[in-house]
Write a protein that binds this DNA or RNA. Structure first.
Length: 428
RNA sequence: GGUGGGGUUCCCGAGUGGUCAAAGGGAUCAGACUGUAAAUCUGACGGCUCAGCCUUCGGAGGUUCAAAUCCUCCCCCCACCA
């Protein structure tokens, strides 16, 4: 089965150029393909996961993926300040971020032996000179055409307007494609559906300057069933970096997926066979929850490794109760089968305290605040007043409740805010 | 550069001297119901030494017993014109 069919079947394809020629190109070549990533943060987040998984599928089919970090574009930023993502950042910062990004990507892609590349467009963009750029590249672009691009049209009509810098991103990205084409033999660019205009512009530029046929694929914008952009939560982005977003939280993120999203997410974010995934559509109620556990397990495994996935599963079980994974449910998954009951290690966020400093001395709401379960004392107070604060699964009765000796069993205190947020206090 | 319109609590958006910690909606959080889902209902939603107090309405000053609301200067945004 060709990559293209696989990607199509799993829901990756929004649009593509030259359908037949591309299919042909991919079957007869070890193709090099690229996707651009933003280096403004030291970590990628779930929003980029579709792109990453697509690259992984490419690699699995013997093609060579390139992850292009936009270090050059990051150096420009965007003065309109409308898009948070385009902040000006320093070279050092970009280097730092690149390290983090490479680290994360290496969980999904094999960078050894030239099997995948991580490049930075600063390599060529910072060398550009304005006049030659205008003469050699700018001449190929028609402003008339550019402003017809969906991404620009919206901005042209909106009050926010469009800065010249943003307007130029299309040229720069097309230039990237051209560079990758001539230096790395890369003639396939992929990206989110908002990149369509930029990708097509690149294809044109490649044809005009290198005389080569290039291709493009865009992915759909993944939204949750409730219409929210994938990977955005109340807390902000769902990071792939374990430091910023623990494997346990990551696991929880997937378990909390909407019913209607489970099948789609399994297809996009795991490597489980599609025949198995289709079975999920028959499930409902508690059984569907088990499928969510598999989704969470697999997704966590891919991103953080099997050990962490297992820990997260166990932590989840000890928090929310046992779960039985039947052998027939998504058999391709390596999730341990059988009944999982509360036991074993947990990987719930924890903080250490000196027992003598706490017991009988501190208010419980203070602990909620200090462990970041609540963002202010008023917040903690509210939580208690509304009955959402728990210590070792006992509801906290009043805002002036102290930590008691009886709370400190086994030198641990389990704090809970609402139904899903836990924090463990470890007493020394 | 000119003219006009704006900058309000996470977002949108009311408010034009006291009754304003500031309507309404969204988002979010908690409770109930559930399946760690969705929908629905209820409540909360600046901070604190919490039935009281303190700090907020682009920034800095000023008028007033009293300012988000009036005045001055500054910063920023938008539209049209050049």
């Amino acid at each position: 089965m060709s990559v293209l069919s696989v990607l199509k079947e799993r829901g990756f394809i929004e649009d593509l150029t030259h359908t037949e020629a591309l299919e042909d190109y991919l079957t007869h070549n070890r193709a090099t393909c690229y996707i651009g990533f933003d280096p403004t943060a030291s970590s990628l987040h779930v929003g980029s996961l579709v792109c990453i998984m697509a690259l992984a599928h490419m690699q699995r089919h013997g093609h060579r993926p390139i992850a292009l970090v936009g270090g050059g574009t990051g150096l420009i930023g965007d003065p309109s300040g409308k898009t948070e993502l385009r902040k000006v950042i320093t070279l050092e910062q970009i280097d730092e971020n690149k390290k983090g990004i490479r680290n994360q990507l290496s969980r999904f892609l094999d960078f050894s032996d030239d099997k995948a590349l991580l490049l930075d467009n600063a390599q060529w963009l910072t060398k550009l000179e304005y006049i030659p750029f205008l003469r050699d590249i700018g001449r190929h672009f028609s402003v008339n055409r550019m402003i017809k691009a969906e991404s620009y049209k919206a901005r042209m009509d909106s009050e926010d307007g469009l800065t010249f810098i943003e307007f130029n991103y299309m040229l720069l990205q097309a230039y990237d494609f051209m560079q990758l084409g001539s230096s790395y033999d890369c003639f396939l660019q992929m990206g989110g559906s908002d990149q369509w205009g930029n990708i097509v512009a690149g294809i044109d530029l490649v044809r005009r300057t290198l005389g080569k046929q290039a291709y493009g694929i865009t992915f759909p914008l993944i939204t949750t069933a409730s219409g929210i952009k994938m990977g955005k939560t109340h807390k902000g982005a769902v990071w792939l970096d374990a430091q910023r977003f623990s494997p346990y939280e990551y696991y929880q993120f997937w378990v909390n997926a909407d019913d209607a999203d489970v099948e789609r997410f399994l297809a996009l974010f795991t490597f489980l066979p599609m025949e198995e995934i289709h079975q999920v559509s028959h499930l409902e109620g508690a059984d569907l929850n088990k499928a969510k556990a598999v989704l969470a397990y697999e997704a966590t495994k891919i991103c953080h490794g099997e050990d962490e996935a297992l820990k997260a599963l166990q932590a989840s079980v000890s928090m929310f109760g046992g779960i039985e994974i039947a052998a027939t449910l998504l058999p391709g998954s390596s999730i341990p089968r059988g009944t999982h009951s509360a036991a074993g290690e947990e990987s719930v966020p924890s903080t250490s305290y000196n027992k003598n400093d706490i017991v009988g001395k501190r208010l419980i709401i203070d602990l909620f605040m200090e462990t970041n379960l609540c963002k202010s004392k008023s917040d903690a107070r509210r939580l208690v007043q509304q009955g959402g604060a728990y210590v070792n699964d006992n509801r906290v009765a009043g805002v002036d409740q102290m930590v008691l000796e009886s709370d400190a069993k086994a030198d641990e205190i389990l704090l809970r805010a609402g139904k899903k947020k836990y924090h463990k206090i470890i007493l020394d």
